[in-house]
Amino acid sequence: MSMGADFVQFSLTPILIGILAAIACALPGNFLILRRQALIGDAISHVVLPGIVVAFLVTGTIAAIPMLLGAGAAALVAVALIEAIKRLGGIEPGAAMGVVFTALFAGGVLLLEQSDTSRVHLDVEHALMGNLETLIWFQAEGWGSLADPAALADLPPELLRIAVVALAIAVLTVVFWRPLKLSTFDEGFARAIGLPVSVIGLGLVIAAAVAAVAAFDAVGSIIVIAMFICPPATARLMTNSLAAQVWGSVGFATLSAILGYVLAGYGPLWLGFDSAVSAAGMIAAVSGLILGLACLFGPHRGRVGVAAGG
């Protein structure tokens, strides 16, 4: 087997899934950070876990639709809890959010440890870091397999799922570009010309939640948190045009996914260690590193109000 065949079988699909997951999260992340709602991306990625675990306990499967419904239900519970804590405890919104999301995430972890999920890819380690390295393409024998229907049928289902979600979010971003841009910049004016601002805001959060659920399955929550914030924030520091920022976020998401995957697989070997490290963890770390460089050297730094991730 040649190097090319090895690459197609073991690395192509994980890298593609990593790229698509990063892009699906980065696209809505652009608008979330400009709306000073970066915390919502963070929140969604936390709330997804208990939602998914409960959905699994109820349905016994990890199919996409029950997972999404579970995550959605968990988000509703989270919103209700935040309101309750704000009103009853008189606690400021940021703190109420922080408490609810970390508590729900912790609850999800406990629930997961107590459940029998041995039949499926659902445990605490996967929840945090995904299982990117295991999403390999067994039937592939080289680049030629891309034209072989039998081999293509064996592609990991996670690839198709995240590809559909990433494409849908990209199409929605293009179609609703003007309403998204105007309602993000000037909500009052957007309402005054008759745009359904609340619906647009809700749609954005739903798109982010769908991206989080689809990405969560393959790459875990660490990468989801990082990809909502790091690529868009990096791109914002590099440009003063919204279109360039969104394209840039796609570029930085792709770069993080490729660099992170390669560094996770080969970096430790280069440094003399025996084993590879988590690809999802490395992708998130690389995206953070790129953001750090942009903060130090970007031409438009010091402008983005990014809330710290947790």
């Binding site: 400009l34 993000t184 910049f185 000037d186 009052g188």
Partner: peptide, 10 residues
């Protein structure tokens, strides 16, 4: 003052 003038646009 109701908008963020750091929004990336011209």
């Amino acid at each position: 003052a109701s908008v963020d003038w750091d929004f990336p646009t011209t």
